[in-house]
Measured scan of single mutants.
Amino acid sequence: MTYKLILNGKTLKGETTTEAVDAATAEKIFKQYANDNGVDGEWTYDDATKTFTVTE
């Protein structure tokens, strides 16, 4: 399945997608991606749209 991440960081904003077997796997990938890019904030997930959002 395709999952989407919306980044609302102070210095980085944008979107990315990943292919993952489930939401938990996608979350791990996205949290590593956000960490690698210096984004740390409040996480939400919308199962209907398979979208994670992180807001600093």
Rank of each mutant, 00 (worst) to 15 (best):
Q32K: 09
D22L: 04
T49W: 05
T17E: 06
A26V: 03
T16E: 14
D22V: 03
A23F: 08
T55H: 12
V21F: 13
D36H: 09
K4S: 06
T53V: 08
T11L: 10
G9P: 03
L5F: 08
Y33V: 05
T2I: 13
V39L: 05
N35F: 15
G14K: 14
E56P: 04
T11M: 09
Y33A: 03
G41A: 02
E27V: 07
Q32E: 10
Y45S: 01
F30I: 01
K28E: 14
T17N: 06
K50E: 03
T11Y: 09
T17A: 07
T11V: 15
G38A: 08
A34H: 02
F30V: 02
D46A: 04
T49G: 05
D47N: 06
T25R: 06
T49H: 14
T17D: 08
T2K: 08
E42N: 12
K13D: 07
A23T: 13
T2S: 07
V21M: 12
G14F: 15
T18P: 01
K28F: 14
L12F: 14
A20Y: 03
T44H: 06
I6L: 10
A23I: 14
E27P: 00
A48F: 14
L7I: 05
Y45T: 01
Y45A: 01
I6P: 00
M1A: 11
K13M: 10
W43K: 00
E42L: 15
A24V: 09
E42H: 10
A20L: 02
T17S: 14
D22M: 04
F52Y: 11
E56N: 04
D40Q: 13
K31A: 07
T53I: 05
K50R: 14
K50H: 13
E15K: 05
K10H: 14
V54A: 03
E19Q: 12
T44N: 09
A34S: 08
T16I: 13
T17H: 11
N8F: 06
V54T: 03
G14V: 15
K4G: 04
D47R: 09
N8R: 07
E27I: 13
N37V: 11
D36K: 09
N37L: 06
N8D: 13
V39I: 10
T25G: 07
G14R: 10
A48Q: 14
A24S: 13
T53H: 06
A23V: 10
L5V: 04
K10D: 10
A20I: 02
M1W: 14
Q32R: 07
A24K: 12
G9D: 04
G9F: 13
D36I: 10
L5M: 05
I29V: 14
I29F: 10
G9H: 14
F30A: 01
D22Y: 04
T2V: 11
Y45K: 01
E56S: 05
K10V: 14
V54G: 01
T16A: 13
E42G: 08
A26S: 02
T25M: 12
T11K: 09
A23D: 07
N35Y: 09
W43A: 01
W43E: 00
I6H: 05
A20V: 06
F30R: 00
I29P: 01
K4V: 14
K31Q: 13
A23H: 14
G38F: 10
